[in-house]
Simulated scan of single mutants.
Amino acid sequence: MASTPSLILLALLLPLIPLAIAAPEKHLVTHLPGFDSALPSKHYVGYITVDESNGRRLFYYLVLSERDPAIDPVVLWLNGGPGCSSFDGFVYENGPFNFERGSTPGGLPKLQLNPYSWSKVSSMMYLDSPAGVGMSYSLNNDYKTGDLKTAADAHIFLSFFEGRISSF
């Protein structure tokens, strides 16, 4: 029989089985400071409200696959912690950019394409979770959390995208 953490993980991953997702067009990123070329694929960034009564909103950054987002898998990236933003994964681990060496000290860092980005073969969803981590927040300081609350919020978050399945 599966353990509770395994069931929670399964519940989080099941919505990712669809092969392509779409984010609201108002969340579309058209350019990034420090990167002077066209983005290698569509990028989306924004907040999804997971608890209206507490004003709890989770921040995400979605990078569509550079290959074929209609058939490539979707990876949900959650950095370890506690308290580590998944945006760290985007900028330091497996995202589409690296910081260019030799940038001007104190100036705007320059970005260059990461030839080993996971977005070469999959769409990447970077999620700051739970509220209070990274750029996710609660309007009334509702930051007491645990595995079940975090999993429930992630399920609500993923359900928002599940209804937006599309082909690109």
Rank of each mutant, 00 (worst) to 15 (best):
L10H: 02
L10N: 01
L10A: 03
A11S: 11
A11V: 00
A11M: 00
L13V: 11
P15Y: 02
L16S: 07
L16D: 05
I17S: 09
I17R: 07
P18D: 05
A20D: 13
A22T: 11
A22I: 04
P24W: 07
P24S: 13
P24V: 12
P24D: 15
K26D: 12
K26C: 09
H27L: 04
L28S: 04
V29Y: 02
V29W: 02
T30S: 10
T30F: 04
H31P: 04
G34Q: 12
G34Y: 14
D36K: 09
S37R: 14
S37K: 15
A38R: 14
A38W: 15
A38L: 15
L39T: 06
P40A: 05
K42Q: 15
Y44Q: 05
Y44I: 06
Y44W: 00
V45L: 08
G46K: 05
Y47C: 00
I48D: 09
T49Q: 08
T49V: 07
V50C: 06
D51F: 00
E52S: 05
E52V: 02
E52T: 04
S53T: 10
N54K: 12
G55V: 14
R56S: 09
R57E: 15
F59G: 08
Y60C: 04
L62Y: 12
V63A: 14
V63G: 12
V63W: 09
V63S: 13
L64M: 10
S65C: 08
E66I: 00
R67I: 00
R67F: 04
R67L: 05
D68A: 06
D68R: 03
P69Y: 05
I71F: 11
G80Y: 00
G80D: 00
G80P: 00
P82C: 03
C84G: 08
C84P: 02
S85L: 02
S85M: 01
S86G: 04
F87K: 10
F87G: 11
D88R: 15
D88W: 15
Y92C: 03
